[in-house]
Design a protein around this nucleic acid. Sequence first.
DNA 1: CGTAAACCGGACTTGGCGGTCCAATCTGGA
DNA 2: TCCAGATTGGACCGCCAAGTCCGGTTTACG
Lengths: 204, 204
Amino acid sequence: MPRGRTPKGEATRARIIAGAAEAVLALGVMDTTLDDVRERTGTSKGQIFHHFPGGKDELLTEVARHEADRVLNGVQARMSPLTTWEAWSRWKDQLIGEYDRSGADCPLRILVNHLGPATPGARAVVAELLSQWHTHIRTGLERMRSAGILSGDLDPAAAASAVLTAIQGGVVMLAATGTTAHLEASLDLTLAHLRTHALTPDRP
Amino acid sequence: MPRGRTPKGEATRARIIAGAAEAVLALGVMDTTLDDVRERTGTSKGQIFHHFPGGKDELLTEVARHEADRVLNGVQARMSPLTTWEAWSRWKDQLIGEYDRSGADCPLRILVNHLGPATPGARAVVAELLSQWHTHIRTGLERMRSAGILSGDLDPAAAASAVLTAIQGGVVMLAATGTTAHLEASLDLTLAHLRTHALTPDRP
DNA sequence: CGTAAACCGGACTTGGCGGTCCAATCTGGA
DNA sequence: TCCAGATTGGACCGCCAAGTCCGGTTTACG
C-alpha cells in the first residue's frame, strides 16, 4: 500500500527546489543543468527524478512557484498598506534602493522572462502572481478612493496595470542597460500622475 | 593574397542572417539550431561557419543588429514627427493596434529579453538601440517645449525614459498574460501625464 | 586562360545534458 | 521484529546540436 512521502523525503525535495532556484538565479534558466542542481544540493540524479517524475519541466515549475511565493511575500510585506501618499512614496524609494543594491538578477525578471515561457505550468504560476499583485495594488487605490483622498476619475484597475507595467519595464531596462534610472523615471511619472488625482479629505 | 568577399558570398551571408532572424522570431533564441537556419536558408554548415567564424554567437550578434535596424526603422517611420499631441495619440493607437495583431512575438521582446543577454555583442547592440530610441523621443519632447506647447516643468529625458519603459513593460506583460490591456493602460497613463504639462501656444 | 582564393556541401566528430535503471539502504507502521 | 515501500547513489544510455574537415566548384583578377 502507498505510504506517502516521508519527512526526510519532503526535506530533500524542498532542498532540491531551493538549490535549483539558487542555481537558476545565478546561472540563468537555460544554463542551469540538472548536474548543477545535483552538485549544489548534495543529491543525485536518482533523487531528482524520484521527487520530480516530470523531469526538468516539473522542477522548473516548482521553482517558479517557489520564487513567486518569495516575490509576493516580499511585495506584501513591503507594500502592505499602500493606502496613503506617504506609503506610496516610501514604497517607491524602497523598491529603487533594493534594485540599486541587488542589480539585475532579481527573481522577478527571471520568473517573468525566463521561467514563464519555459513551461506551461510556470506560465500559469506567473500569470497568477501578476494577477494577485495587480489586485493588491488596485485594492489599495480603491481604499484611497473610499477614504476620499483619491478622485473617482481615476480607474483603479487601469492605474494598477500601469504601476505593474512600469515595474516590469523598469526591470527590463535595468537588465538591458544596467541602470535603475529608467525604472525610477517611470515610477516617478506614474506616481506623479496618481497624485494628480489626489483629493484632500476636507474638501471633496 | 586576400581578395575580400565576393558579391555572391555577401548575398549568402545576408540570406543566412535574414533566415536566422526569421527562425529566432518563430522558435525563440534557445530553440533555434544551426540546422534550422541551414534548412531555412538552403545553405550548409560549412557556409555558416565560413561566413561566421565565431559560430553561433557571432551569428546571433548579427541577427541582433539586423533586428535592431528593423525596429528602429519601423520606429522612426511610425513616430517620425512626435511633436504634436495628435501625433502622440495616433502613434499610441497604431502601436497598440500593431501589438494586438502580431501578438507577443515582436522583435523587440526577442531582442531585449533573449538576444541581448545571449552574447556581449548583442547586448551592446540592444543598448545602442534603446539609447537611440530614447534620444528620438526626448528630441520630440524638446521640440514641443521649444514650440511652447509643453511646459518647462517636465524633464524631457525622464519623460522619454518613462515612455520607453512603459513600452518595454507592456510588451513583457503582453508576453506573460496574452493581453495588450496593460500596455495600453500604461501608455494611456503616461501620455495623460504628459498632457498634464500641456500649454496652449496662445497663453504661455 | 590559369590559378589562387572565395565559396559550397555534407559527412563526421565531440561533448554535454536529460533521462533511465537498478541495486543498496533507510523508515515507519502493523 | 518485519517488510513494503520510500529513499538514495551513481553508472549508464541516447540524443542532439555545435563545431570540424575536406574534397569539389565557382569566381575574380592578371
